[in-house]
Design a protein around this nucleic acid. Structure first.
Ligand SMILES: [Mn+2]
Ligand SMILES: [Mn+2]
Ligand SMILES: [Zn+2]
Ligand SMILES: [Zn+2]
Lengths: 143, 143
DNA sequence: ACCTTCTTGAGACGATTTATCAATTTCAAT
DNA sequence: ATTGAAATTGATAAATCGTCTCAAGAAGGT
């Protein structure tokens, strides 16, 4: 609870800057969110049902979107649902996804990121975010 | 009509291999699809309403998904909708997307693709497809 | 403590895509 | 060409996901 100082600070900053309030729900959801690598609103809804059975799904959606605006999370469409990635710990990262078993491996590659910038510049764009997903089979599923 | 020999062949192959049938609707939708770079089911529905007012939206969805399986199209979630990219003409490509005006620039970058392969190999994966989207502002929207 | 403003929870709602199913069409075997 | 099993279609119901609405409650500056 006291270990998420940095993230709590980022949230407070964002709230202050936009005249928003720090609520019990927002603290609760932040706590749960920081323990995850990526999670959907629905998953979090079920997880938190134990701690607060009255917490509404709409509040979870609202709060996760707030985290995105505060720079703590990043939304990513995966399949039919939206995954909220925790970027506060390890920063931005991309994904290798096994279409056989659903396994997800996270990676970072500075060279790729650099080339992306070049492509953007060449086309007159300024990149704010990106998304790179590699789909295939992991070593186990290949056999 | 006669210029889409290759694509028609790919479709026929897929149909034969899966005991599926070549229908008037599938030909109609293929024709329209090959004229596009990327299109949504809804857009195609409206386009084809002139040629066949009875063509159902469900058939369009079914057929575009069929094209994906046949290797002619690739589905890509963009905003709330699914875009079906025509990959038969220019092959695989990635996208630069302006979050200001919605402009889409297509690009290919072999170096990036090569680095992707390296990342996959390093993690024991064999890539079958991937998706790279760069979001940002185009030169016009930056001002 | 007061009061304005923001937030919440419950469910309605909207948008998109898939499932259902009776009627029709395809196509391979006669 | 005819037949008949199997696939396809169109209309619409249903499912899914996320946002909107709004009255009741909470936050926080004074
Ligand atoms: Mn990246
Ligand atoms: Mn590519
Ligand atoms: Zn696997
Ligand atoms: Zn733009």
């Amino acid at each position: 609870m006291a270990k998420s100082e940095k993230e709590m600070g980022m949230l407070r900053d964002h709230l202050a800057k936009h005249q928003l309030k720090l609520t019990r729900q927002r603290e609760l959801i932040l706590d749960a969110f920081l323990k995850q690598e990526h999670i959907t609103a629905e998953e979090m809804y079920h997880q938190l049902a134990k701690k607060d059975p009255h917490l509404g799904l709409a509040t979870i959606y609202r709060t996760l979107n707030l985290f995105c605006e505060a720079g703590l999370a990043q939304a990513r469409h995966f399949g039919t649902q939206t995954q909220y990635d925790n970027i506060s710990h390890k920063g931005h990262h991309d994904h290798l996804i096994c279409t056989g078993c659903g396994k997800i491996v996270e990676f970072e590659n500075c060279e790729i990121e650099k080339l992306q910038e070049e492509v953007a510049t060449r086309n007159g764009f300024t990149i704010t975010t990106h998304r790179l997903e590699l789909y295939g089979l992991c070593s186990r599923c290949r056999h």
